[in-house]
Nucleic acid binder design. Sequence first.
DNA 1: CTGAAAGCGCTTACAG
DNA 2: CTGAAAGCGCTTACAG
Lengths: 357, 357
Amino acid sequence: MKKSKQNEPAGVKDIARRANVSIGTVDRVLHNREGVSEKTRARINKIIRELNYQPNILARRLASRKTLQFDILIPHISNESDYWQAPLLGIIRAEAELKQFGINIGKFFFDQNDKDSFVKQAELILKRKADGVLLAPFFLDESTQFTHACSRMQIPFVFINSDIPDQPSLCYIGPDLFHSGYAGGQLTRYCIPEKSKILVVNVSKEIKNQQHNRLLRKEEGFRAYFKDNNRKNPVVKTDIRKTDQLSIEKNMSDIFQQHPDIRSIFVTNSRVGSVASFLEKNNMKNLLVTGYDFIEDNISFLKKGWIDFLICHKPVEQGYRGIMSLYQHLVLKAEVEKTYFMPVDIVLKENCAFYRN
Amino acid sequence: MKKSKQNEPAGVKDIARRANVSIGTVDRVLHNREGVSEKTRARINKIIRELNYQPNILARRLASRKTLQFDILIPHISNESDYWQAPLLGIIRAEAELKQFGINIGKFFFDQNDKDSFVKQAELILKRKADGVLLAPFFLDESTQFTHACSRMQIPFVFINSDIPDQPSLCYIGPDLFHSGYAGGQLTRYCIPEKSKILVVNVSKEIKNQQHNRLLRKEEGFRAYFKDNNRKNPVVKTDIRKTDQLSIEKNMSDIFQQHPDIRSIFVTNSRVGSVASFLEKNNMKNLLVTGYDFIEDNISFLKKGWIDFLICHKPVEQGYRGIMSLYQHLVLKAEVEKTYFMPVDIVLKENCAFYRN
DNA sequence: CTGAAAGCGCTTACAG
DNA sequence: CTGAAAGCGCTTACAG
């Protein structure tokens, strides 16, 4: 341990001394507060630049008794899918780290199958006047309305999981779905014989929401891979609108009756576990199965060999990084990447023990 | 923004008041400094526990003018391989974040092919009496000697990239090599016909160092996968001791003369680029090529299709996390995981654009 | 429009 | 062995 004395970075005191003002005035200039004559403001700003003043964040947060409020709006964790546990975990991790910096996180949850619940929670957040918002924009119109309100109130917001590109969001943190599907295409083509038949499965209740669009985007990418590479594999597709296990099995059963020569299945979301379960029950081996998300159900089928590949986009990190982006912007006043695509991770039986979601 | 008034966490003042002592004495107890009677120490400790006192890290670092010195000892970046750029990048990223908390990082580099350079740099570090050390233990004996010295001087140290298990390190951050090779095995077997011939390539100058052991460990894992899954693919192996491009090509040429039926190549380190270059020059298509590390040379062959899979272990994060572990231990006094295995990431042409090294 | 003082929660000498 | 005071680099009222 050492004590540094030389070359200390400049502080408000140094600026005040050089500008012949009090540190209070320097503080006003630093924070663009009113009540300073243009002349002195200019003089002080010049000195700040000359000295390349870097505020001491520690001191700043210690002295300011202010608490920042970040509010999150994501789907609640349902039995149907425990995917959203992961982003929440990342958010909680960020919360723990930022607590000592005076940041609180308000958690609001909505029902994936209920637009009204989204709207209601969004209103609650607006009433509280959060300093920053993180949301998963599930319902296109409702989300847009909400973020417009945020913009009006000057509340910065970040999207995770899915993006609404033409919004003035602070940033988007999540997958590039098209390329994610594209990578799924490559994995599939590597592992199955040429020209063998492929089944694409979309499982989603509503057909007219962001969630369903997400699935289609992956499917596009998946198909594009084969097209771009001149592969002529026939592709069968099924849309399953009833998402309970029984309906899925029924649907799969029908499909396989019509197409007994299917060699590979690509499920565009985390419901791949239900498909795997069907295969297990009917002892249908020798199919290459690819799907999404590192959740318990899927992992167990991966280990048992009924799923070959899981594609993942680090949902825990999405939550963590989303909160940290607000922190970077609001506290550190640092630049934030407008679009942060998560990696397209490939998990298989043999590396799943080491996967960090 | 809000001001929290109620339920403020307890501070040294509260403790002092309750214990009927000055805050100076509380501070002494908090830091286990001498000069406090056993009676008062016990009394204060009891109150600290009762109040579940959590120190304010901000205030602590602001008040204490101490600077912590972390020193790193890793290979310098050579033309031969730019792998080590990545960990250094992570270290520099951590440095930027921790600067405002009064942490400095001293950077020491050694030559991978020169034990003496390692020893020399290690001695420099010991003389400076760092508060914490991060090292890549390339040379087994020399590293052990160095870490023994650290232990004696009570300097915590962390390993990255490769581990020396029986050392009192703060932690190891890096791959589980055996399982990394194992995953390589699964990828290979998925993508090639049964019973087709496989070539394993180890490229390393010295045969008796940590670095070479690393390669063998991956090879073990790779072979174990086939054994565990009762695959009878014949495996040919070659050890290349001269690591220049020409020698590698010569060696490969010989191997393929003997074994023209090789269907797949597994290169146990980042030199897979050199192998790919050989294949490209000789226009040898239809081979499945798997290797290690997300470095420029390899990425370009991946994109061109001469490499199919790159296995990676997030070297940037290894560096970042290594420094952060020292910070967690020394500043935050938090627990640190003794072994942090990095994920076994699989990069292919179609997801490489999104990979975060 | 500006300044002087108090305070954030700690640590660090110094005095006794 | 213990206490009182000063100070870390800022922000926040308050006074003029």
